[in-house]
Design a protein around this nucleic acid. Structure first.
Lengths: 333, 333
DNA sequence: CTGAAAGCGCTTACAG
DNA sequence: CTGAAAGCGCTTACAG
């Protein structure tokens, strides 16, 4: 049980006051070189570390960020969390990770908890339920505390704060143009999470493209995840698609399995492109082409913007758009 | 900016001392019913919440747990984290999640940070590098602080603390017996993470079974993950396996793809069973049979044991064995 | 039943 | 250049 050294103990041994020790350790110009040296040497000897709890109380700053993650089993979010954690720790911040598990109730609870625990800022992606019910008041309430909030990926215009988003419109557009460029004419679009803002954005990206009549588009939006496989299988069997775009992580993966199940040649007869460059895409057979949203970078950027906001209270809300990359693999070429 | 209410403010408005307010809110028997009621009413009106930073300083307890996760992109760990978070929040604890990313250096750094930040306990799985280099001193150092430590999944006998592990021996044994029970005689065993304690345990589980001569065993232990696909493909092509056991999350998945690639009929010609019931297993085609380690329950149990240890300093270290389940899917029947 | 005082471990304006 | 004092927001042993 190594008793933790305190300022008081150091001051006693050095025969100086606690104030002097504190100032010396913080390199105050008030203190003489000589004293600073003496203090630091003893501190080093004892492995002194200031008690962060006391420092927090005094400074009203905890060097802790609260993170709200809707679904940790989703690779994209796992990657973002990874990026957040990395950037935060680089800058001397800890993170309190809260897994909201797609529940609005949990999101509200955790946000209150984070405020109450004096985190210096919050980075959040909203839950599916939040976006479905359009209930955002708790975020505005949190913002009233004066601490910064950065929303990422799943965002809404109804909250006035910094945002980091993927350019879903453009990413989906790129996928579409890529497939049409290959001469594909009959394209199926699938999502198992149709209410998410990101999915809506991707869909719009495709629908807004001016198309000539030779290209046919058909959509399958699945509300009930349990039926996804059956519905996708029917969808693929009953049309004559030469390409499928899976708008979320699992949609593309299921489409690949279903195409194989129906003895379609991938990518010759049917090309498949998905979203999120995770395990599923890499371990699909054939390997799946996907839009990578660069989750790690995105997470890092969210932290960066949050930290900037701490000192900049004047400028209006920022919207950072994380570029995406279309990764071409065997499922489409 | 809603200014946070403090005890002092309440005491002023109520014309009682700060001590009285504090005691009233904590239901001290010293305080009269009437005063308690008055105090609580005003506190409720103002939405008073004690400042947890101050409470921590006073009580020397932060209601925070530190969690060390070696690989958040691995579904098993994501599930465990989920279980930890759930159980912790049920009990009024927050978690500080540290992603060690399989690096011994990060593990050391974070452990120091957690101690320094006065977490009430730590739950950790060791990194691959830690197990490889057998460098465990930092854990013992942390233990000297007197705060409890629970190791899960990736553990070692060289640290004397509570542990929560999967019964890897038994799980692997069950898989083996299941396959042999189907009449499989020529079994390939694959791992892409051969240095992990859990993989070693699984392998031993299989090797320790008394076998008659009719059953052949062949192993492929892959050190370099980049070559996994090529090596597994060679392995499967050049032998005449009727069953493959993948000892980690990706090994089984790659084996399925490789078998299909070699035009083997799954499960008729070759059965495949993996470990970890994650996205990969569920989205494999055919769906993969796996050993589920029940990560969520395991995480919950780790928290439970940690909390128990906080009040029980006498009894010796516990070892909780998380039961596993063999989930049979189309890849093996 | 209520309150004054000390203290958790720091920082910092102020005095000397 | 150094130190005494106040204070961050609480809790609790002690006095009355």
């Amino acid at each position: 049980m190594n008793q933790k050294t305190t300022l008081k103990q150091l001051s006693k041994e050095l025969n100086v006051s606690v104030s002097t020790v504190s100032k010396a350790l913080n390199n105050s110009p008030e203190i003489s070189e000589k004293t600073i040296k003496r203090v630091k040497e003893l501190a080093a000897l004892y492995g002194y570390k200031p008690n962060p709890v006391a420092v927090s109380l005094k400074r009203n700053k905890t060097y802790t960020l609260g993170i709200l993650i809707p679904d940790i089993l989703n690779h994209f979010f796992a990657k973002v969390l990874y990026g957040i954690e990395q950037k935060a720790s680089e800058n001397g911040y800890k993170i309190i990770t809260c897994l909201t598990n797609e529940s609005l109730g949990k999101e509200k609870e955790y946000l209150t908890m984070l405020e109450y625990n004096k985190v210096d800022g919050v980075i959040a992606a909203m839950t599916r339920e939040t976006q479905l019910k359009k209930d955002f008041e708790h975020f505005n309430l949190y913002k009233d505390s004066g601490k910064p909030l950065v929303l990422f990926d799943r965002v809404t215009d109804e909250i006035d704060c910094d945002k980091v988003v993927v350019d879903d419109h453009k990413a989906a557009e790129e996928v579409f143009n890529y497939l049409v460029g290959q001469g594909r004419k009959n394209i199926g679009i699938i999502s198992t999470l149709p209410h998410l803002s990101v999915i809506i954005g991707r869909l719009q990206g495709i629908e807004n493209i001016p198309k000539d009549d030779t290209v046919q588009l058909e959509k399958l939006m699945i509300d009930n995840a349990d039926e996804a496989e059956k519905l996708i299988d029917n969808f693929i069997r009953n049309s004559n698609f030469d390409a499928i775009i899976g708008l979320d992580e699992t949609a593309g993966s299921i489409a690949i399995n279903s195409a194989k199940h129906n003895n379609l040649d991938i990518p010759k007869q049917i090309a498949i492109v998905g979203f999120t460059d995770g395990l599923l895409a890499k371990n699909a057979y054939p390997k799946m082409s996907v839009v990578s949203q660069h989750g790690i970078e995105l997470g890092g950027n969210a932290v960066k913007i949050l930290l900037e906001r701490m000192t900049d209270t004047k400028s209006g809300p920022k919207r950072f758009i994380q570029p995406t990359t279309l990764i071409k693999r065997a499922s489409s070429e």
